[in-house]
Amino acid sequence: MILVTGATGTTGRAVVDGLHRLPGNAQVRVLVRDPARLTGLPASVEVVVGDFGDEASLASALVGVRAAFLLTCRVGEGDDGRFVRAARAAGVRRVVKVSAAAVMDPGAQDVITCWQRQAEAVVCGSGMEWTLLRPRAFMSNTLAWAPSVKRERVVRALCSGSRNACVDPRDVADVAVCALVGDGHAGRAYTLTGPQALTVDEQAAELGRQLGVELAVEELGREAAQALLGRRHPRAVVEALLESACRQRAGAKQAVEPAVAEVTGRAARSYEDWVRDHLDAFRLTGTSGARVR
């Protein structure tokens, strides 16, 4: 049995789908807080209700599990520690943990990166087989542009001229599937990127090309970005994201790594590929266009 956490999110759901496509019909169980958010799951997938903060529910979900995909989101809440304790007690042999590429950057000392470093240490000290996945920013983050693209033909972003080797979350999921079911990944940490480092300007140009319009790019100042991020995140996380943007501006996120191809045996998906597969999310309303600048 393989347990997948985070199955209501983009990456976790892609892991479930990837496991389902494998020959041999792997047994898959998903741990979710709200099963109503899961739609269209294969009938063979078992759904259990639980929460990282509820150790009894973790113990129940991990019964009979041999490998687990671990994705946590609550910064500083100790979720990784509780999960690892429950997994070790249940006899889980292998854990594949999603972390972040920034953990390898000595200049990254923000609260999110420090939390991820601590989480990695917990997993690596667990006594179980472990694999760490360290993705760069997800291409799917650009879905946040959809409302302004639809209404105004505008993309608003920080550091629009700086480069980020963003990765398709489906590639992260594909590497996770390989690590969950294959050999040779124990004790490995994979930094996962796309095939090229792109600026927001270049991403907006590609998105506009596929939509058949020109999109304007507006650079957000720090105060505007702080206000926008503050609608979705607590203050400490907002500050961490702003610090991360500064590091991107300094060139800390532009290195392209070969791990996706090395693990999966195929090239990493491009941003062009990602846009083509998600274009409906940006379909325009109205007819007016705008120039990219």
Rank of each mutant, 00 (worst) to 15 (best):
V4G: 01
G9F: 06
V15M: 03
G18L: 05
G24Y: 01
N25Q: 10
V30F: 13
L31T: 02
A36I: 05
R37M: 06
P42E: 09
P42Y: 07
D51R: 03
A61L: 01
V63K: 07
A68F: 00
E77H: 15
G81W: 08
R82F: 08
F83T: 01
G91C: 13
R94W: 04
V98A: 03
V98P: 01
S99H: 05
M104D: 07
A108F: 10
D110E: 13
Q116I: 01
Q118M: 08
G125Y: 14
G127P: 11
L133E: 00
A144G: 12
A144K: 10
A144H: 14
V167N: 06
R170E: 10
V172K: 04
D174P: 00
V181P: 00
G182W: 14
A186L: 01
Y190G: 04
Y190S: 07
T191I: 10
T193I: 02
G194M: 09
A197S: 12
D201H: 14
L215Y: 12
L215K: 12
A216D: 10
E219H: 11
R222V: 11
L228S: 13
G230I: 03
P234M: 07
V237A: 10
E239L: 08
L242T: 13
G251P: 04
G251T: 04
P258R: 08
R269A: 04
W274H: 04
R276W: 03
L279N: 02
R293C: 13
R293T: 14
